[in-house]
Design a protein around this nucleic acid. Structure first.
Length: 320
DNA sequence: ATGGTTTTTACTGCGTC
DNA sequence: GACGCGGTAAAAACCAT
């Protein structure tokens, strides 16, 4: 499962690279031509403008004398994507001097103080705005990769916004926090995804997600109960093409186990997987441990151990 | 850091198709 | 002989202390 995923991703990356070299129009498949004069890339066949962003932001690279340098040099520093505003925002010097180096009068000084303050405010607001935009994009991407419903995305966005408002971001990556938001939201909505599944679609390490998640949950006082094994059942069952009845059996098994407190400290996913497997057995539907282990991302050994326990619990307490 | 618990990995044996 | 299943031992991961 994880293998197929990585494979498709690399395959996509390759085709993208190929497309980059051998340019073809996305609309009609025709040849792309770079129009230097207008700074556009257009399709030879249908005239589609693919890219208008042909501006060279770097400095001119050759100037033979001072006059030529004046003529050729462009204004300002090259822009960079490393800063949220590409380095184009205004900064107000902290020294209370005017452009000639003379000190400012007290009225002017006060005015500059005010300007600095407001400039700072607008700038950070702006930066948060961009931060948010990127994070929301990520959340959306991951949510759809995981097949999570709309309301989960909403919740994830809200969580992220709160994290941003409470200044939880410094020291943590946007990726990490947005991933944690998705993880938390999915669990809250009762459609949990395991950490492994989350890590699969995220750009950050599992360990970092876990760390960030704990942090965010704690700081935001989020209420997330330990995932209920039952909430995994429908997904696993449908992935395996099992009947409603089997699903029902699996739930019964889990409820039973719950009452007997069999599950404590055991991974909910493992329990769910075992219940699904056991249910399939009981309803005479064909599945293998290997298949369940595949869809649940749980080792077969764990499934075996859990499902023994589940069946034992069933013996102890007659089914209602 | 440490020790206890759970999960995973890897391997082996058994029965069946 | 391949497949599904069961078990075991050791390694790894996880968690609370």
């Amino acid at each position: 499962m994880s293998n197929t995923n990585t494979r498709t991703i690399t395959a996509e990356a390759e085709t993208e690279q190929e497309a980059d070299e051998e340019v073809a129009c996305p609309e009609c498949g025709g040849r792309l031509v770079v129009d230097d004069e207008h700074g556009e890339t257009i399709c030879d066949d249908c005239g589609l403008v693919v890219s208008e962003d042909g501006i060279d932001r770097g400095p001119e690279w050759r100037a033979f004398d001072a006059a030529e340098k004046d003529e050729k040099s462009r204004v300002g520093a090259p822009t960079t994507n490393m800063m949220h505003d590409k380095g184009l925002s205004t900064n107000i010097d902290w020294r209370d001097k005017d452009a000639y180096g003379n000190s400012l009068g007290s009225r002017q000084r006060k005015k500059m103080q005010r300007l600095r303050k407001w400039n700072e405010r607008f700038r950070t607001r702006d930066s948060k705005e961009r931060n948010l935009k990127q994070a929301l994009g990520e959340i959306d991407r991951m949510a759809s990769a995981l097949g999570l419903p709309e309301n989960v995305r909403e919740t994830a966005s809200v969580i992220y916004r709160r994290a941003l408002d409470e200044n939880l971001l410094p020291g943590r990556s946007i990726e990490g926090v947005s991933t944690s938001a998705v993880y938390a939201a999915a669990r809250q909505a009762g459609v949990p995804r395991s950490l492994d599944e989350i890590a699969e679609v995220s750009r950050v390490e599992k360990s970092e997600i876990a760390r960030t998640y704990r942090y965010v949950v704690r700081e935001l006082g989020l209420e997330v109960k330990p995932a209920d094994p039952e909430s995994y059942v429908p997904r696993f069952a449908s992935d395996l093409g099992l009947s409603e009845e089997a699903q029902h059996r699996a739930r019964k098994l889990l409820q039973n186990a719950k009452e007997q407190g069999v599950h404590s400290g055991k991974s909910p996913v493992g329990l769910a997987a075992a219940a699904v497997y056991a249910a399939a057995l009981l309803t005479n539907e064909k599945t293998t441990q290997a298949a369940v282990s595949e869809v649940a991302d749980i080792s077969e050994v764990t499934i075996r151990n859990r499902y023994h326990e589940l069946l034992e619990a069933e013996q102890g307490l007659p089914v209602a």
